[in-house]
Design a protein around this nucleic acid. Structure first.
Lengths: 347, 347
DNA sequence: TGATACGATGTGACCGGTCACATCACTCGT
DNA sequence: ACGAGTGATGTGACCGGTCACATCGTATCA
């Protein structure tokens, strides 16, 4: 923008008051006569004055800007968290600068550029990896860790995460209750916290039902449909014992599995039950519609933003750790275990 | 952040030089002895100095911040544009503040808060609706319109858009070349520019092949899978003349159609060919894998950012209008028209 | 009625950089 | 040997707000 903007001093002289009075008016301060206020407002209107946010940040030492750092912004789950956070931020007069940090180097760069150089007042970090999430976050910067998994021992800031252990448990329990005993799992990258937690939930559910988990039926994917597709083909064609049900740690990989199953002429759910996690918008339209666990990502974002803003404004270091529960959405990709079919398919 | 940061003056006195010299060093200016430069750099290192971005913006009158405004950020297409733009922005030392403007009111608010108040240096606007996209954008603000469709008569800024007319033409032509003569279309919301252009491409392709377009086979959807699903059921069950091929204006709606077709026990593509647009990541995993047109959204974002930055830095009002072509991706949802099957299905 | 208090308003300094210009030392040309 | 020219460095003002405090007028109370 060209630097031709009208300043607070212009408004002041136009209204015949001091800049401080104008400042009071635009900040909705009390101590102004309603008469002068009216005069100032008229001047503002007349001149089309808009306070300069940069100058204000400078003087106040706060920018009203938050940053949300995620591995990427195209992933539906991250994008939804961001959108939720943004809604809350805006309603409280903040702006949310969302940005991607695909690697640690970028993350450090962003810390310098966003936090150390004073561009933002606080941080929402979506960092799914197991390594200490607060690594690299400058001390003293209000920070909330979101969605990445429960980092139990973190020192700084609060967190809002999914209860992945419960999610894994619920998903697995659902399959068990349908009568399945040979249950496989396709996980996300093992380096991510949520993956570990979902695995733990899986193991716990099996154990609670007196079932053994078969390591051969647990395979690591990378969240993509493509990985689900290839892993399932391999799993189905080359393993001795085939599972009768599969817990797939996200919906994208689950579609991949569905597609591979289709190619292998498998009947879902008669021959194989599949449950995913996320409930992405297209999940009801898969073939067959996918049973999955719905995660309220928007709520994670909202909650994180709320926590962050209250930490900033009350200047108290929040240590709250919130967990969001997932809800089972039953569709047609899971069904009762049928012994006959299962026996047939084994050959 | 607490206001305990070390300032340029601290560095200056520590290094025994003036603040201006420090300024020269951090701005990679020439006129500094390599000896003093070394001393200053040492001081910076010692004190952990990081220039304050806000103060710098204030003094320079530029913030190094761009904004990208889209109806939402969860839509895969928008998110990808944003990610592309962000990559370029960052590589050029800018930050991209992406934000949602679901309605006009919010848009105006954002213009005030982002542009008029000097938070950003330029704007990327994703505004798919037919109404004048530059409406509400403050004059003098470098602006690029992205992805929304070719707004031919816009006055301000440049644009990077998809060649939707060509996309519609290509998609339709593909169906025609497979022998289809009765081709239906499910459009996006008629208020969006790209929808109109895709329709025009559709009509043109039919006309060029001497085919008539049947208004009864053209229905408006809302981009969601759900709308595709319901529209197709209605279309298939209640119309006199059923199409043998369907051009669906995005992939999400196309999945909805696929799902409805499955329910109606239709064989795709034997009884009905379906082509989408977008090539979302899950498109190859639909049932059957979806023939579609791939749009390079990331490139749109990148190109928009490049144009915007060059407009800002050279202070020339760019009027360039770029169009990105879509590429046909053939998968299994389209196939040759078979007369017999088509005749059968009519009853 | 005068000291007090309080509400409305104004003033100077300041936030942390950068800009334009001044200053200074030193080399070069004649 | 002296003025001009050049490169390195320093100084004051400024960007546009806000903060802390000063000032002023008037209502309140003893």
């Amino acid at each position: 923008m060209p630097r031709s903007k009208v300043t607070i001093r212009d408004v002041a002289s136009y209204a015949g008051v001091s800049r401080q009075t104008v400042s009071r008016v635009i900040n909705a301060s009390e101590k102004v006569t309603s008469e002068t206020r009216a005069r100032v407002l008229a001047a503002i209107e007349q001149l089309g004055y808009q306070p300069n946010a940069v100058a204000r940040s400078m003087a106040r030492g706060r920018t009203g800007m938050l940053a949300c750092i995620a591995p990427n912004v195209t992933d539906y789950t991250f994008a939804t968290i961001i959108e939720g956070a943004q809604a809350v931020a805006r309603s409280q007069g903040y702006f949310l600068l969302s940005t991607t940090a695909p690697d640690g180097e970028t993350f450090d760069y962003l810390m310098d550029q966003l936090v150390k150089s004073g561009r933002v007042d606080g941080l929402i970090v979506i960092q799914p990896y197991i390594e200490d999430p607060s690594h690299g976050v400058p001390a003293g910067c209000p920070t909330i860790f979101a969605g990445g998994g429960a980092h139990a021992n973190q020192q700084v800031g609060g967190s809002v995460v999914l209860d992945d252990m419960a999610a894994g448990y619920t998903a697995t329990k659902h399959l068990i209750q349908l009568g399945h005993q040979s249950i496989g799992m396709i996980t996300g990258p093992l380096g991510e916290v949520c993956v570990q937690n979902r695995m733990t939930g899986f193991e716990n559910a099996l154990e609670d039902s007196g079932l053994e988990s078969n390591p051969e039926l647990i395979v690591e994917g990378d969240w993509t449909a493509s990985s689900g597709y290839h892993i399932f083909r391999e799993l189905w064609l080359n393993r001795e014992n085939r599972p009768t049900a599969l817990f797939v740690q996200n919906d994208s990989m689950a579609v991949g599995v569905l597609h591979a199953a289709e190619e292998l002429a498998l009947h879902i759910p008669e021959q194989l039950s599949i449950i995913g996690i996320d409930d992405i918008p297209l999940a009801p339209y898969f073939h067959p519609p996918l049973t999955t666990l719905r995660q309220d990502f928007a709520e994670i974002g909202r909650s994180a933003a709320r926590m962050l803003i209250s930490a900033i404004e009350q200047k108290q270091t929040l240590q709250r750790h919130e967990q969001i529960e997932a809800a089972l959405i039953q569709r047609q990709s899971t069904g009762r275990y049928h012994k006959k079919v299962a026996l047939n398919q084994a050959f």
